[in-house]
Amino acid sequence: MDNLNLAFLFLGGVAAFLSIAMLLAKNPIAAALSLLGIMLCTAGLYGMMQEHFIAAIQLVVYAGAVMVLFIFSIMLLNLKKEERDFKFTTPSFMATYTAGIVIFIGIIFQLLVHYDLFKSTMIPGPFNTAEVANLGGNTKVLAHALFSQYYLSFEVISLALLVAIIGAVVLAKRKFD
């Protein structure tokens, strides 16, 4: 249990700042680039936690494929810079903002109350950092789990991906009227 690392603080702070920038962005492409920055910061955090496989997947799938899809469709639809579509003073924004703050504080409170309880009442699993490094790294351990214990889930998820690909092609090609 080590104290807060400075790199963690930096990556997390940048991610939090970019999420605020994303909420306030007028231009959709600026929001998309902020989301890309958040994905990159999250991938950096995964890498700092020694979860290399998840970090690589985050970079390839999220920051690569999904964000390219988003930016591509923004350019396809030719969305322009527009007026900010909400005002800070409207009752609806105030209500949502208050609800968000309340939920956030509730989550933080529950975390602080129960966080140490978790570790003391629960038996930790075998895969601590040293053991994972001993077994050949995060990728190898995950691959063993994925193709033995979670084999059926893996097959089902690939089927779901296939269905999504076909659905996206059919929906995008469909001509109305």
Binding site: Y62, V66, L69, S73, L76, L77, L161, A164, A168, A172
Partner: peptide
């Protein structure tokens, strides 16, 4: 999430 964004964006284009 990747599947969701692909389907969601094609719905958005429609």
């Amino acid at each position: 999430a990747a599947a969701e964004s692909a389907v969601g964006l094609s719905i958005l284009i429609n």
